[in-house]
Amino acid sequence: MRPFERVVVEYGPMVLRVCRAVLGPDEAEDAWSETFLAALRAYPELAEDANVEAWLVTIAHRKAIDATRATARRPLVVESLPDRAARTRQPEDWDGDLWAALAALPTKQRIAVAYHYLAGLPYSEIAALTGGSTDAARRAAFDGIKTLRATYLAPARGGTDR
């Protein structure tokens, strides 16, 4: 079994992208830390031939659900505090226009898009995580991408598309 450090270096960026895309700037880093701490705890029992990406996304998914529930429980006054206005945020940063477009998606679509396009999970595995059918997961990702193309890629970025 290889040192856990190698897992962090190889998959840390992918997990952070998924956490950012699903949870947004305020929750992503806590979810990342919780995911890797839980992964470290369970790592010695992980099968040698396990799919590490799917394993990590499964853990991240549970942490993301926890984070979403915690946010839902929080009193509204906390959410309305303008603590984010102080940060300088550029439209071209991920937590500018891209996060705004992702945040506008229904949760199911945002999750399907993130797990498929950022973690590389096949729709069958996404369905196993979120419940529902493989077709439903595929449709959620398809609808999500379609909306993102319209809301994020198309309008403002016309000529400056990267």
């Binding site: 960026p13 952070l16 992208r17 950012r20 895309a21 071209e92 940063d93 991920w94 500018g96 891209l98 396009y117 950022l118 991408i145 993102l148 193309r149 890629l153 990267r162």
Partner: peptide, 9 residues
Amino acid sequence: HLFGPLFEI
């Protein structure tokens, strides 16, 4: 292409 800014960590 779609998520460019997310790839910059």
